[in-house]
Simulated assay, not measured.
Amino acid sequence: MRTYTRQQLALRNGQDRPEIWVAFEGYIYDVSNSRLWKNGKHYEHWAGQDLTAELQDAPHTANVFDKFEPIGQLEDR
């Protein structure tokens, strides 16, 4: 599985490039086809970033990521 930096993830925000990616618990998910992530925004959350810490405030569990295959890993740096 390919590893991406936070800077590479940030470019996949639905604004700078057509891809809409988010990271969760070290994995990167392509949510481009999700109707809930149009234009790189999902309620008050923006794509192109690690959403691990933000899940505790979400009205859903981590199971939401089961719908998506991880496309990469987030670099630790």
Rank of each mutant, 00 (worst) to 15 (best):
D57E: 15
F24A: 00
R12F: 00
T5Q: 10
Q73T: 13
E44L: 01
E75I: 02
V22K: 03
Q73R: 15
E75M: 07
E54H: 07
D66F: 09
T61F: 04
Y27K: 15
F24I: 03
D30E: 11
W37N: 10
Y43V: 08
P18A: 07
W21K: 05
T61S: 14
N39L: 01
V22D: 04
L74K: 09
Q49E: 11
R77K: 15
T3D: 14
N63Y: 05
D57M: 08
S34F: 01
T52G: 10
L74P: 09
D50A: 08
T3A: 15
S32W: 00
G72W: 00
A58F: 12
V64Y: 00
P70R: 12
T5L: 09
Q49M: 03
F24Y: 15
K67L: 14
Q8H: 05
F68P: 11
E44T: 05
R77Y: 14
R6G: 05
A47S: 13
K38L: 08
E25Q: 15
Q8N: 06
T61L: 04
N39R: 10
D30T: 05
T5H: 09
D57S: 15
P59A: 06
Y29M: 02
D76V: 14
E75Y: 06
M1D: 05
R35H: 07
K67P: 04
M1V: 10
Y4N: 01
S34Q: 07
D30I: 05
G72V: 02
D76A: 15
P59Q: 03
G14V: 02
L9W: 13
R6I: 02
E54N: 04
Y29E: 02
Y27L: 11
R35S: 11
P59R: 03
R77S: 14
D16Q: 13
P70A: 12
M1I: 09
Y29S: 01
D57N: 15
F68L: 11
A58Y: 11
I20A: 04
L55Y: 04
H42M: 10
L55D: 05
Q8C: 06
L11I: 00
Y43Q: 13
E25L: 08
E25A: 14
L11G: 02
P18D: 14
E25V: 03
D50L: 08
K38Y: 01
I20S: 03
Q15M: 02
N63G: 13
D16K: 13
Y27E: 09
W21Y: 08
P18Q: 11
R2A: 09
N13M: 03
A53Y: 09
W21P: 06
E25C: 07
D76G: 11
D66C: 08
A23H: 06
L36Y: 12
L74R: 08
S32Q: 04
G26T: 12
A53T: 12
N39T: 01
A58M: 14
R12S: 01
I28Q: 10
W21I: 05
Q56I: 14
G72P: 01
F68W: 08
